[in-house]
Design a binder for these strands. Structure first.
Length: 112
DNA sequence: GAGGTGACTGCGA
DNA sequence: CTCGCAGCCACCT
């Protein structure tokens, strides 16, 4: 495949497709890209998302448990949680409340 | 060129 | 139920 485009590039594109007030998981994104077993790559890709333009709403991407695993990479520990709350997403103890309700799966919402 | 790491996930004990 | 381990693939040293 094109080594020029990394797996991360695809991840950024999918993350930007996440609608306002919704969140997704690494596994869901990886699965949408055809690499459901490579959820780690999604997380690793997000690590570089801070320098990607346009801005990647990485705060909408959490782990399978709805836990804000990457909040530590936002500079401020509460930055990720704050952004989610601004979108109407209830977050407590770094965990997304009603996660199933705000969960957005690209393999379903953006299928085909 | 080879080894190690990681914002994960699923399964086994 | 909770804890631990292996798999997976790109990027970094």
């Amino acid at each position: 495949m094109r080594s020029n485009f990394t797996f991360a590039e695809n991840v950024y594109d999918v993350v930007r497709l996440i609608p306002f007030g919704r969140v997704s998981t690494y596994g869901a994104i990886a699965s949408y890209l055809g690499a459901k077993k490579s959820a780690r790559l999604v997380g690793y890709a997000m690590n570089n998302s801070h320098q990607i333009i346009p801005v990647v709403p990485a705060h909408r991407v959490v782990n399978r448990n709805g836990l804000l695993t990457g909040k530590h990479f936002f500079g401020a520990e509460n930055e990720m949680q704050r952004r989610l709350e601004l979108e109407g997403i209830e977050v407590k103890n770094d965990c997304i409340q009603q996660f199933k309700k705000v969960f957005w799966d690209p393999t379903i919402e953006c299928a085909l």
